[in-house]
């Protein structure tokens, strides 16, 4: 199979997967107990029974789930329209886009830093096995990986705001809301410090541990011995022979994690009142906002599938054996 066929097949499979996800999501949310109208308006003194009926009609909930609601939804999507969120009263695509970049900025930055530091730490620990560096890095990573997200976030928030005057929440100071981005970069950066730092610590452990075990495995291979026998320096062995091979599991992990980036980080976003997709998902679920839920899960499915495809392609580049098979 040549590369074009391989990619086409992957692409075709991805389309089928997305379609299946769409159908499952549509049914899944409707199986949940409860009434979306009640969830949207709450236990509200201002809403009469008649108004609730009118809303149910407006949302299309008075019609049977299948075929009416199902084909209505599919028809809308076919036209590229994700509908209007019931709880936010704004187009779903607009809401998703407004949160997407916030989340990509925060999670992307957190991931990037944890990958860099995790891989370096893992490499060092594996290379300097059974030394103080190894034990220290291992202990730190295990603790970082085990810390509850919420707890770490709150501790860092309290410490950061008390000792360093860092903001207690949000993406920008209220006073800067609505100003052009380039004028408020220092403010945004200040707001990003604590959540990014928390994320970095949390993700770092995972990358470090995988990198460490991977490099240990590679270092015990015969070709490393051969390389050393040829008189190559430690750095050359590590850089030219060990690292590339040891990166394979990390690439998979990165791809998987990046795919889930758009699901946001509900805990982090909640602790730091950060306006991202994770919180949006949570709101959509608690409000049983079907259009928003469907849109959000579609976005999530598409990004996970794209990330997986990217991992497949990268794998083929990094490891020639994949291509051959």
């Amino acid at each position: 199979m040549n590369r074009r066929d391989y990619l086409l097949r992957k692409f075709g499979l991805s389309i089928v997967t997305i379609f299946v996800v769409v159908i499952i999501n549509f049914l899944l949310f409707r199986v949940l107990p409860g009434d979306p109208v009640r969830a949207v308006v709450g236990r509200n003194v201002r809403i009469s029974a008649e108004t609730q009926r009118a809303l149910r009609e407006q949302f299309g909930l008075d019609k049977p789930v299948f075929p009416d609601q199902f084909f209505d939804t599919l028809g809308q999507w076919a036209q590229g329209n994700l509908g209007v969120s019931w709880s936010l009263r704004r187009p779903v695509s607009e809401v998703l886009m407004s949160k997407l970049w916030n989340t990509v900025l925060l999670i992307g930055l957190g991931q990037l830093l944890s990958i860099i530091f995790g891989v370096i730490l893992g490499l060092l620990a594996g290379w300097k096995r059974k030394t103080a560096i190894d034990v220290g890095a291992l202990t730190f990573s295990l603790i970082a990986w085990a810390i509850p997200t919420f707890w770490l976030g709150i501790i860092l928030l309290a410490a950061g705001s008390t000792w360093f005057g860092l903001p207690t929440g949000g993406i920008v100071s209220p006073i800067n809301v609505g100003k052009p981005l380039y004028t408020i970069i220092p403010d945004v950066a200040r707001h990003l410090i604590l959540p990014t730092f928390t994320l970095t610590i949390l993700y770092l452990g995972e990358y470090m541990l995988i990198m460490r075990s991977s490099i240990l495995e590679v270092l015990s291979e015969d070709y490393i011995l051969t390389a050393k026998a040829k008189g190559m320096s430690h750095w050359q062995v590590l850089w030219k022979h060990a690292l590339k091979n040891a990166m394979l599991p990390i690439v998979t992990l990165i791809a998987l994690n990046l795919g889930f980036t758009v699901s946001g980080a509900i805990y982090i976003e909640t602790v730091f009142s950060y306006d991202g997709l994770g919180k949006l998902f949570q709101t959509a679920l608690t409000k049983q906002d079907y259009p928003l839920l469907q849109g959000a899960f579609l976005l999530l499915a598409v990004s996970v599938i794209i990330a997986n495809m990217a991992a497949d392609v990268l794998y083929a580049v990094l490891d020639p054996r994949v291509k051959e098979s």
């Binding site: 709150i154 928030l157 309290a158 705001s161 008390t162 207690t168 929440g169 949000g170 209220p174 006073i175 976003e269 909640t270 602790v271 730091f272 009142s273 950060y274 919180k279």
Partner: peptide, 14 residues
């Protein structure tokens, strides 16, 4: 100015 917090601990700290 009204500022929204998503968790009360952070709000009290603020």
């Amino acid at each position: 100015i009204f500022q929204t917090f998503d968790n009360t601990d952070a709000m009290i700290q603020a």
